[in-house]
């Protein structure tokens, strides 16, 4: 146990990303990371199932990706900043992703914010 993280398991809705998780989930994290590289991005845009296959994703991982299950991907062990590349390729803003992670529409989420126009 990392002493710096003592008590973090009591913070609900939070999934610390550590080396153990990183080792377990390196394949799907690499899949998203590579979307920032033009060749991988082009393959993803042209033929998404081929991109899943090229990265060797499991059926469970493919379902999470296909469903754009942002919260499910976080719980599974994807690092948020890998997901950020996915959002860029899908032309979604971070606010879209945040709303979906909270189970809200973008409009619902923005209503909870101080300056909803800052989008």
């Amino acid at each position: 146990m990392n002493p710096q993280l003592e008590g973090i398991d009591q913070i609900a809705g939070t999934y610390p990303f550590d080396v153990a998780r990183s080792v377990e989930r390196i394949r799907i994290n690499r899949f998203f990371w590579q979307l920032a590289q033009p060749a991988h991005r082009e393959l993803f845009v042209r033929d998404e199932p081929a991109a899943w296959k090229a990265s060797g994703l499991s059926d469970e991982e493919i379902a999470l990706v296909r469903n754009r299950d942002w919260l499910g991907l976080i719980r599974y062990g994807v690092n948020f900043f890998a997901l950020e590349k996915f959002a860029r390729v899908l032309r979604l803003s971070n606010l879209d992703v945040y709303a979906q992670m909270r189970g809200e529409s973008l409009e619902e989420f923005l209503k909870t914010r101080r300056v909803p126009e800052a989008r």
Binding site: A12, G13, L71, I74, F109
Partner: peptide, 9 residues
């Protein structure tokens, strides 16, 4: 800020 999980926002 928090931008992952149910505690996002």
């Amino acid at each position: 800020h928090q931008i992952h999980g149910e505690r996002t926002g």
